[in-house]
Design a protein around this nucleic acid. Structure first.
Lengths: 156, 156
DNA sequence: ATTAAATAGGACCAATATAGTTCTGTTTAA
DNA sequence: TTAAACAGAACTATATTGGTCCTATTTAAT
């Protein structure tokens, strides 16, 4: 359905909050409280983010999570990679090969892959730091900048 | 999971095939045979595409489907709109409002909406005609053209 | 040393979404 | 009149996802 999973959305929200106080250690309980989310769910998300080294964790009493690196160095695409269990791609065939019967005589697979890489680039270009402040995103600014569309499709 | 549904994928394949022979009328049976897909599924897809006026249909014996307009005037985004039942958007909250408890104090919703509009633009910029020939897509060419990324995130 | 506060990992269940099928009806050329 | 074709809608099975829970393990504080 062209949606990111809820866990990815939660993860982005959590990381965005953490990015506002860099270096600080956050416990699951605290994050759950301030973000109005369920602790077990947040915990699940943070564990996955930890495995993908987007956050670092400190175990034991007084432990918690912190961003593993600067917010400018974490992209939305990386968050997606960490929390979606399917590999990145708008279609299965363009993310993984050998999963579709008709892959042989499919004309559009290569084009899906091209589309993927463009979308991917957009998402790679948005950093956590961009998510903290509601300013125009880099990709957006760039696209808006070019005045006239070189091709038109009926707007909707 | 950031995937387009299989029906959308099928729809794109079907439309791409039809775009190779503009004006021609295709029956479900023929499309099923040449594309190696199940007739009932293709039928379902074409009905939906018809409702959204991407194809026109002729009923009765010798009937079938044809593109409703030129392939250059049909975008991938339009196909997605026709075949996905959820409205376009990477997150639910950014596609529809009032569906999330924490919408009030959510900091990132506006940014998701901005990301949506960028991705949307990419998909709106790819036409069926682009899907027929495996040449670089317009959006891709544009992004590749800009030499240096203005921000870097660790590549993966 | 013991306890309590934390994270780690994994299994599990329930709800939802998707894919695919089938059935009934309508249209129209032969 | 018949058969080929689309239209719409309901239905079922499967897969995915969201969410919870349980059992370790780690570590600061008492």
């Amino acid at each position: 359905m062209l949606r990111v999973s809820k866990l990815t959305d939660y993860g982005t929200l959590v990381l965005t909050h953490m990015a506002s106080f860099p270096e600080r250690l956050f416990s699951v309980a605290e994050l759950a409280q301030v973000l109005h989310l369920n602790a077990p769910t947040i915990s699940k998300v943070l564990k996955a983010l930890g495995r993908h080294e987007l956050v670092s964790s400190v175990r034991g009493a007084r432990g918690g999570y912190a961003l593993a690196r600067a917010a400018t160095e974490i992209s939305v695409a990386q968050i997606i990679d960490a929390l979606e269990d399917q590999p990145f791609g708008l279609t299965e065939c363009s993310a993984t090969s050998g999963t579709c019967d008709i892959e042989g005589d499919c004309r559009i697979r290569a084009n899906w892959q091209r589309i993927n890489s463009v979308v991917r680039r957009v998402l790679d270009d948005v950093s956590l730091a961009d998510m903290v402040q509601p300013t125009p995103l880099p990709a957006e600014a760039r696209l808006v900048r070019r005045a006239t569309p070189e091709r038109k499709c009926t707007p909707q």
